[in-house]
Design a protein around this nucleic acid. Sequence first.
DNA 1: TGTATTACTTGATCCAGATCAACGGGCAGT
DNA 2: ACTGCCCGTTGATCTGGATCAAGTAATACA
Lengths: 193, 193
Amino acid sequence: MFDVFFSHVLKKVSLTEEEKSVLKSFFVAKNLQKKEFLLQEGEVCKYLSFVSKGLLRSYHIDEKGDEHMNLFAWEGWWTSDIYSFSFNETAQFNIDALEDSELLLITRENLDEMTLQIPKMDRYFRILFQNSLATKERRLVSSNSYTAKEKYIQLAESNPQMIQRVPQNLIASYLGLAPETLSRIKKNIALGK
Amino acid sequence: MFDVFFSHVLKKVSLTEEEKSVLKSFFVAKNLQKKEFLLQEGEVCKYLSFVSKGLLRSYHIDEKGDEHMNLFAWEGWWTSDIYSFSFNETAQFNIDALEDSELLLITRENLDEMTLQIPKMDRYFRILFQNSLATKERRLVSSNSYTAKEKYIQLAESNPQMIQRVPQNLIASYLGLAPETLSRIKKNIALGK
DNA sequence: TGTATTACTTGATCCAGATCAACGGGCAGT
DNA sequence: ACTGCCCGTTGATCTGGATCAAGTAATACA
């Protein structure tokens, strides 16, 4: 359970055995079955969650009832409604499991306490958030600047695993496209553009 | 020059006078005149920049030559091509000044060194990036989920200062709209929807 | 203080991608 | 093995916002 976690943390900061065991104490383990919810829109998001096994999705449902994917998180990724978690406001995202999953959860209070006890973890999360921000910034520009086909090709190149692992209709939603549109785009690409 | 800077840092972490003077030594001050560039697409972004006075914009230019705004930064905000800065890759954004501006620049090497000497700054940047990430995540969903009019109204409510301070055609670009579209939207709103 | 350049508006037309509709194929549960 | 249904495909049509075009107001600059 913690193996995947430590191997990820150790890529960014070093930890003693002592620190590792302190670290563990701030987390709670949770299993989630396929289709089970970790968070529902309207609640306050209490946890930052590390995925040690499985696959989760985070998505928003608009007034018309349409789903809009925010992100997918599998082994080695964190997920949360980070806005809700940070500012203690109502969540805008739902998070549920696309596959049976194993998680490590930490509350905001524990995160604060943990980083005070082990300041290196501020560095870990600083780097984590910095990298996520960088990626999200590029995705936002891509979303405003490119055609549907260009966006799909960019995604396929930058994140081929997502395309293998996540159903096509959810990929469409992630790109802000109708499922029919993505289907047609893939057909065109297969026919040599 | 550093007054605005310290007042912002102190909102998130406390600092001794000693630490303040150490902190200062890692930054370089820079003035930028209106229309002058801080960064051009294709370079590597060497600095994370704090705006102590003025207004900058960060934007991407696509193959057709169209500009797509990424963000605006005024007093108390940071700007950078964070992807380029973090991963030492070619910048995708241009950054230039919309008003005469005063900046504090820090290199990646100095940022790393500074956070090692003053670990509290890891916490400062952890919180900064966490908040930016939260905001960007919401903006991305908004961009994929709402109509042009809804996006404008949301922006006007959540960030009225931006609308006052930034020219309308740049706001349009920030929202991923043609300037004509935003003009019409504002007209409709003025006419009572 | 005049003129040039840039910002904003308004109208007419166009198009990428959404929506609606119908069908086939795979796989999940009994 | 059967059946139900979810998922992807394909076709036909519609539409929000882009694009093209022209005029007007505002700001800068000399």
